[in-house]
Amino acid sequence: MRFKDVFSIIGPSMIGPSSSHTAGAVRIGRVARQALGGIPTEANIRLYGSFAETYRGHGTDVALVGGMLDFATDDEAIPDAFHHAEQAGLNIQLYTEKKPVPHPNTVDLLLRSQADAISIQGCSIGGGNIEILKVNRFPVKFTAMQPTLLIFHTDRPGMVAEMSGVLRRAGVNIGLMQVVRESRHGKALTVIECDQPPGGTVLSKIGRMESVSKVRVIDLIGEGGRA
């Protein structure tokens, strides 16, 4: 089932004009910002397909940037996102590309901050729903409609048991889990969709595990934005 609940059909509450080109874009921008772990200083946006063809009229550009500023989909400041970005010291570069992509509405985002960098490939599949298909070079597939952990680590035996053990002890149920690695013993990424928001204790326990380099939480649920 691509669409899992009633609010993926009725909803989101959003700023127009397009659920796929505007609301979906806000969410992809927000996923990227949360994957970076803070406000970026530099954003490189590459639009493909229908995103590239029609971004101006749909405000896809302002929506992506609004998401990077952690705006929710119905934040009335979205139309002025470029202005807010300038004030926040976020430098934006936008390109349109032609190469074949998995979905008509696809974007590659590369975000940098003083401390870190992340790249995300996201698709907007309709009705404001999104799929994240790449994090850095790792192929993944998640919707961000559940609190989602991104755990960056190196491949070693026992990792999966240890990570899931921390979640089990905290009473957090795993809805979906993906483990992707570059090579045996190489860099790896684990994506875990949780049925309950993982608390701070879970994050710090996983963060302290051997061979984990960083943990990020993607959480668009409350759509609270601008915390």
């Binding site: 059909i9 909803g11 989101p12 959003m14 659920s19 609301a23 009335e76 309709g126 009705g127 404001g128």
Partner: peptide, 9 residues
């Protein structure tokens, strides 16, 4: 501001 039902369009 609107509610997508099912989409904004």
């Amino acid at each position: 501001r609107i509610i997508a039902t099912p989409t904004a369009g």
